[in-house]
Simulated assay, not measured.
Amino acid sequence: MKTLTRKQLVALAAGGSLALLLGAFFFQALGYAPCKMCLWQRWPHALAILVGAAYLGVKTRVLLWFGAIAAAITSGLGAYHTGVERDWWEGPTSCTGGGDALSGLTGGDLLPGSAVDVIVMCDEVVWQFLGLSMASYNFVFSALLAVIWIMAARKPA
């Protein structure tokens, strides 16, 4: 079996973040508005995509570690969000529970500059497949992407 080159691993990892980010936007286009924690999970994917693109021009190993950190952060956020959804622990009061901290706010107040009219609570699962929510899938797939970034960083040049 042929092993992947460092460049191929970077393309796989950055492409994986791109796929997850596009998937999130696709679900949003289908009417599944993101909650505050969902939006948090998108930023590290964007960073990982930028790191992958930067690596094409500046082939320095430190960038690969930044990609791994970005993937690990979004995976951790996905794990945290999953725990909030499953009531394993409390989440931010601004988007969980009875929404008492949200009384009188609109979606635009919660997410300034967005076109969101509905406030989506972070502790409610709006979509799931095989018992896993979008946050759970982000946790699992992003952890795999972090491993791929680490494999790329450890691979001899």
Rank of each mutant, 00 (worst) to 15 (best):
G31P: 02
P92F: 11
E90K: 15
K2A: 12
Y55M: 00
D109A: 07
V126Y: 15
V62Y: 10
R42D: 13
F139T: 02
C35K: 06
A115R: 14
K2G: 09
W149F: 08
R42H: 10
D100P: 05
A46M: 14
Q128I: 06
H45L: 14
L20R: 09
S103M: 10
Q8I: 03
Q28G: 07
Q41P: 04
L47A: 15
G83I: 01
L50N: 03
L77F: 11
I119S: 00
D109Y: 09
V84A: 08
D123R: 06
K59E: 07
A33H: 10
M121E: 04
C38I: 04
G23S: 09
S142K: 09
G23A: 10
V118T: 15
L21F: 14
I49G: 00
G16N: 01
M151W: 12
L18N: 00
A115P: 06
A13S: 02
T60S: 10
P112I: 02
C38E: 05
S94V: 12
E85W: 03
T82L: 12
A29S: 09
L30E: 08
P156W: 08
I150Y: 03
D87E: 12
W149P: 00
A54W: 03
G78N: 05
A14L: 01
V118Y: 07
S75V: 03
L30A: 09
F141Q: 07
G16F: 01
A46W: 10
G57F: 15
G107F: 02
F25E: 12
S75Y: 06
K155S: 14
V62Q: 13
A68R: 04
A29F: 06
L56V: 13
G107Q: 02
E90Y: 07
A48W: 01
R154A: 07
G23L: 07
A46G: 15
L22R: 01
C95H: 11
V84H: 06
T106I: 03
C95S: 15
V147C: 14
A146Y: 10
S94K: 07
L102I: 07
V10W: 03
V140N: 04
W149R: 02
Q8W: 02
H45W: 08
A71Q: 12
C35E: 08
T96H: 10
L9F: 01
G108T: 14
C95F: 07
L12S: 00
F26G: 05
R61F: 05
A70H: 00
I49P: 00
